[in-house]
Simulated scan of single mutants.
Amino acid sequence: MVDDPSPSRATVAAALGLPVDRVTAAPVPGRVHDHWRVESTAGARLVRVPKLSHLGLTPRAALAYEAQAFRRAARGGSTPRLHGILRVTPALPWGALVVDAVDGRPPRLPEDLPALGRALAAVHGLPVPSPARRRPLLDPADPVGYLIGVARDQLAPVRDRLAAPVARLLATELAAAAAAAATVRPAPALVLADTHPGNFLVRCDGTAVMVDVERPVYDSPAVDLAHASLPTSLGWDPAVTGSAGRADVVAFHNAWAAAVPAAVAAAVRAWVLPYRRLVWLRTTSWACAWAARNDLTAALESAEPATAGLARRLARFVDPAMMESAREQWAGAGAFNVEELIP
């Protein structure tokens, strides 16, 4: 992933063919995108200006990927619609997308979790195109192996720098995930893949919108259910207030199950717990790799609030006690029951 200098307000206005005073900074913080709001008689728009690609794509490929992501997900009605594409130029080295501006607030836990579940259900219930028509979005033939590979690849460069208890926990979980991998592919759907609560806004009518539609993949909806409700996700975004316990996580899954076609819920039921482990491994291996590469103590003491806040969150993720607590959800005596989550 390569950072580029962020384009200015004037650059964005010029690309849109608008006066500078028509473009305003949007109150949407972004590590991967800059955001600019444009008011119009047709409705407010948000200009999403990428700064890098999480998937390691070239700027043009990344822009095409994200454009397709918005087009396909918007059919469910719970993500912003795509209105325009600003091509890659020297002034806009990653291009930009113009999408609906969503007016809403960050989720409050636990009361908004069912609304998040229903928003995801609207995407997961969409018809799935034939394999030949899924490109350019990722469509791994072995999605379980793919997620295991992501975790292993993230850990490989730092394995000798991991604390012994952390290394043991991760090795145990990776081995268990590999042993449980099935030869049959989970039924794929369009999944959004980065569904922590901070990527949603809740409208005044209580409906939720997933606003950061950047890197969907064709995989089991269990990916999104896990990423929206794991402890590592519930505490990730400081703008999301409150907390959620076991009953709240159950209510989130139940709301999703009631909103999707029965066949989708039935197909996901067997995968909902294995994917909690897999998505936890994906997130936790990334956090461990970051902590191993960086001076976590120095980051915690940073005078820069964003750096210190990120370090505090990551310090919890790599704490062996928190790791053990998360594992209890699928491997402990108090593990969730599949029918409890998806009746």
Rank of each mutant, 00 (worst) to 15 (best):
M1N: 06
A13M: 12
G17W: 11
P19T: 03
D21R: 13
D21P: 01
V23W: 09
V23M: 04
T24N: 08
A25E: 14
A26M: 06
A26H: 11
P29L: 08
G30I: 12
V32L: 13
H35G: 03
V38L: 11
A42C: 02
L46P: 03
V47F: 09
P50N: 12
S53H: 06
L57R: 15
P59K: 02
A64Y: 01
A64L: 11
G77A: 06
P80R: 07
I85A: 04
R87L: 00
R105W: 08
D112P: 08
P114Q: 09
L116M: 03
R118Q: 15
A119N: 04
A122W: 08
V128D: 08
P129M: 15
Q154D: 15
L162P: 04
A164D: 14
R168T: 13
E173C: 03
A175I: 01
V191N: 06
L192E: 08
A193L: 10
H196R: 10
P197W: 10
P197A: 11
D205K: 07
M210L: 14
D224V: 13
D224M: 11
L225A: 00
S233R: 03
D237L: 00
A239E: 13
A251D: 05
N254A: 14
V264G: 05
A267N: 04
W271G: 08
W271V: 00
P274N: 07
R276I: 02
R282Y: 01
T283R: 04
A287K: 04
A287P: 02
A292C: 04
L296K: 01
A298K: 03
P305I: 05
G309L: 00
A311V: 02
R312S: 09
R313D: 04
L314F: 06
F317D: 09
P320N: 12
E324I: 10
S325A: 15
W330F: 14
V338C: 02
E339V: 13
L341K: 01
P343F: 07
P343R: 04
